[in-house]
C-alpha cells in the first residue's frame, strides 16, 4: 500500500504574526518557515505504518513555488520514500488543494491519504474533508489513534463530546489531531540520504484543475486586544470584585 501525505510549509508556529500596517497581508518576509505541525504528525503516522509493514511506500506532497524543494527534502529526511512537488507561485485554497490531491490519487492509487487536520496559517480545516468528498471515499478527521487491518482503518477521533471510534474502508482520508503521535527528529545522516531521494515536479497548470469559485481576501487586521486588568491582593478581594460584577 502507498500512503500519500500532505506536507505544507507554513510560518513557524513560534513566530509572532504581524499584520502589515496597510492591511494587505501579514508579514512573511524573512520569517522562519517550517512544516505545518499537523503535517509532521501525518508524516510520522505514515512512517510508523510503513515500519509496521502496513504500507510499503510513503510519498510526501507539497504545493508551492520552486524553493519548496528544500522543505520537501525535510520530509524525505524524516523518512518519506519520495516527494511530489506541484509547482505554482499562487497561494492555493483548500478546494483547489483537494482537487490537486484527487489528480495525484488517480495517478498514484494510494490506499491511504493522511493530511493535517488544518494548516496553522489559514486555519481552514477543510482540505481532507473536501478531498474525501471529491474522491467519494471515507474521511476520518481529527484522528487521535489509527489502526489498519483487513482493508479497514479503525480511527479514534477527538470530538467535542469525547472520543469517537469509526471504521473506514480503505482507501480513505485521515486527518491528524495533535495527540496522534510525536514526530521524530531528523538525524544528520538522513539529511544526506534524502539528497538522493526523488522529487517529481509537476506544473500545476498541467493538471487541468478547476480553480474557480474562490474566496477573495480583501483586508487583514490585527485582532482586538484585551487590555490588562488589575492585580488583586488576596482571595477575599477577588471574590468581592467578582460579586460586584454579578459573576458569583
Amino acid at each position: 500500500m502507498k500512503i500519500l501525505v500532505g506536507y505544507k510549509r507554513v510560518v513557524d508556529y513560534n513566530v509572532r504574526i504581524q499584520v502589515k500596517p496597510d492591511g494587505s497581508g501579514v508579514v512573511t518576509d524573512g520569517v522562519k518557515l517550517s512544516a505545518n505541525p499537523f503535517d509532521d504528525i501525518a508524516l510520522e503516522e505514515a512512517l510508523r505504518l510503513r515500519e509496521k509493514g502496513v504500507a510499503e511506500e510513503v510519498i510526501v506532497v507539497g504545493i508551492g513555488p520552486a524553493d519548496l524543494t528544500s522543505h520537501l527534502r525535510n520530509g524525505l529526511a524524516m523518512g518519506a520514500n519520495r516527494a511530489i512537488h506541484v509547482l505554482t507561485s499562487e497561494a492555493v485554497q483548500p478546494l483547489t488543494a483537494a482537487r490537486i490531491f484527487l489528480k495525484l490519487i488517480e495517478k498514484e492509487q494510494p490506499g491511504l491519504v493522511i493530511l493535517g487536520k488544518q494548516a496553522i496559517d489559514d486555519d481552514a480545516n477543510q482540505t481532507g474533508q473536501m478531498l474525501a468528498a471529491l474522491w467519494d471515499r471515507p474521511q476520518a478527521t481529527f484522528a487521535g489513534k489509527v489502526e489498519i487491518a483487513d482493508g479497514k482503518a479503525t480511527v479514534t477521533r477527538e470530538v467535542d463530546a469525547g472520543l469517537e471510534v469509526i471504521e473506514a474502508e480503505l482507501p480513505a482520508v485521515i486527518t491528524t489531531d495533535l495527540r496522534l503521535n510525536e514526530p521524530r527528529f531528523i538525524k544528520l545522516p538522513d539529511i544526506m540520504k534524502a539528497k538522493s531521494k526523488p522529487i517529481d515536479s509537476i506544473e500545476f497548470s498541467s493538471l487541468g484543475v478547476d480553480t474557480h469559485d474562490h474566496l477573495k481576501t480583501t483586508h487583514y487586521a490585527a485582532p482586538a486586544k484585551r487590555s490588562k486588568g488589575v492585580m488583586v491582593k488576596d482571595a477575599a478581594e477577588l471574590v468581592a470584585a467578582l460579586k460586584q460584577k454579578g459573576l458569583l
Binding site: 477543510q126 474533508q129 473536501m130 478531498l131 468528498a133 481529527f142 474562490h214
Partner: peptide, 21 residues
C-alpha cells in the same frame, strides 16, 4: 464545532464551492 468542521467542507466540495471557516 468538531461536528460542523467535519461535515461542512464535505458539503462544500459536493456543491463545488469554497467554504468560509
Amino acid at each position: 464545532t468538531t461536528f460542523g468542521k467535519d461535515v461542512a467542507p464535505r458539503v462544500a466540495a459536493l456543491l463545488g464551492v469554497a467554504q468560509v471557516s
